[in-house]
Design a protein around this nucleic acid. Structure first.
Lengths: 122, 122
DNA sequence: ATTCATTGTTTACAACCGTAGTCGATTAAA
DNA sequence: TTTAATCGACTACGGTTGTAAACAATGAAT
């Protein structure tokens, strides 16, 4: 199992998944853009992720280059399963039903999902 | 927004959503069955939930009867939305795609979801 | 060469979480 | 009526998380 990634850490991961390797400052620039945290905060998150071996570091002179060691797809698959297991007894249908009920599904969404399901059956 | 419910607290909530009102001991019996925690732990969780006004208490002699103040459906809808927003940019299709890719969707699941979508369009 | 900026490291600290022990009050049992 | 069980309240304690300041080393600029 992939190490647990906290919500704030996840924000940092998204940046690295979008582009890597990056320096701490480069990561921070992007995260700060989106979340307004301080540089120190982002560095702490990077350290924690590195300590958990969720991101890897590569020395580049006096600084580090950070890269994800966990693939986004693998991570998402893992947390999705956990989520559906915990809240919906592992069944996706009730999840879709809930989202639909809360008007989170547009007609386009429905069409998209239908298309996806059609492909899955093929 | 509904107060945040931690994972352990959620376990307690499931019991109360299944049947309420219940005394602390009754809740504990069911939770212990499933999770093996101590009575004290369950009581602590109930207190925290009561403090957050996620469960309500009603005095019954020397003890309390606990009931959910938050509906399961509303709670699930909330966390589902948060989850899909955070991890999939609010789009359900990629979530379904991920679950499918991880072989989490059986042929039956697919049929069920298709049926559900059909109803939604009606 | 001295100063300024950048970088990673260490430390901080409050809130939240999981997990429970203890305690004082009360009630049921003997 | 003394005792044993039960109840909620209070306290605890280590781990995680969000958020960051302080610091030391190093490199850049002047």
């Amino acid at each position: 199992m992939v190490e647990r990634i906290s919500e704030a850490e996840h924000e940092v991961m998204e940046v690295l998944w979008a582009k890597a390797p990056l320096t701490a400052t480069e990561v921070a620039d992007r995260v700060i853009e989106a979340k307004g945290w301080s540089l120190q905060t982002v560095k702490t998150l990077l350290s924690r992720l590195a300590a958990k071996a969720v991101v890897g570091t590569e020395r580049d002179g006096r600084r580090f280059l950070y890269s994800p060691l966990v693939e986004r797809d693998a991570y998402l698959a893992g947390v999705s399963r956990k989520f559906v297991d915990r809240l919906f007894g592992g069944k996706v249908t009730p999840l879709v039903a809930h989202l639909a009920e809360a008007d989170e599904l547009s007609a386009d969404d429905i069409r998209e999902i239908e298309e996806l399901l059609r492909e899955l059956k093929a």
